[in-house]
Write a protein that binds this DNA or RNA. Structure first.
Lengths: 133, 133
DNA sequence: AGGTTGTATCGACAAACATCGATTCACTAG
DNA sequence: CTAGTGAATCGATGTTTGTCGATACAACCT
């Protein structure tokens, strides 16, 4: 079911590879899809969740290990995990009583590519450091 | 004034280089600062603005070229530009009657690095494709 | 000075969001 | 089958955010 979500994101969402944020103007659909993913990253709790999941040796974290790391209720953590999952950033698997989350590196790779500017960027010709206020 | 904002972000915010989202758990301050920048990217209008600014040959765009590209009021565009600026993603310069915006590539470079996972990531040992739902 | 044009700020309002407690669902163990 | 535990969903609530019109500010040009 959530695999489907990923497929959708891959199809009419962030699509083929990298929308190239910095190389050409995004069309409206690309912007909408990309914004959803960045919005998922735009919360400190979700960023910490993601980094805890991504940096865990073995690649998996049990929800039962994530929840007590925050001063938030269990439903709130569950909600944040759901948003990260809907953004295609993480996936989950139930094993017995417990649910394990893991990073889906395809999405972070895609975002990194999106934010990388093409070879010789025509910026800062006469703009050495922080000339623009 | 907004240069100051950038400095602040550089100091106790995203800091030195890359908080390494995917390599180690973020501390609370890092997460808070990073979230602000991602939040700025979490809106389709701002993404389109940023991509229009970044992809413009010469590196500069006049606000007067940006505003008519949207079905939104001038104050709304101004507001979005302000948020992008406060996030350290763009800078502005007034020349005569017009104000020009440009990309500050330091920030996008930093974000790209943040989303890049370290060399041999311990993921997907037994997870070929999209095993996790 | 006075008028004109481009941009930013202000105040208001509706929609979206983060959070919680209560409940329900999924699974395991007696 | 009946607890008991981990996780997700549901409703409600206070806060944040995107948007607008009105207004103020900045620079140019008579």
């Amino acid at each position: 079911m959530s695999k489907q979500e990923l497929v959708v994101l891959g199809r009419d969402g962030v699509e083929g590879c990298c929308p190239a944020l910095l190389a050409a103007p995004l069309d409206d659909g690309q912007a909408e899809a990309l914004a959803k993913v960045f919005k998922a990253l735009g919360d400190p709790v979700r960023l910490r969740l993601l980094s805890m999941i991504a940096s865990r040796a073995g690649g998996e974290v049990c929800v039962c290990d994530l929840t007590p790391a925050f001063d938030l209720s269990q439903p709130t953590i569950s909600h944040h995990l759901k948003l990260l999952k809907q953004a295609g950033l993480i996936g989950s698997e139930r094993r017995g009583t417990w649910v394990y989350y893991r990073l889906l590196p395809e999405m972070t790779d895609r975002l990194a590519a999106t934010l990388t500017r093409p070879a010789g960027q025509p910026l800062s010709e006469a703009t050495p450091a922080g000339a623009a206020s």
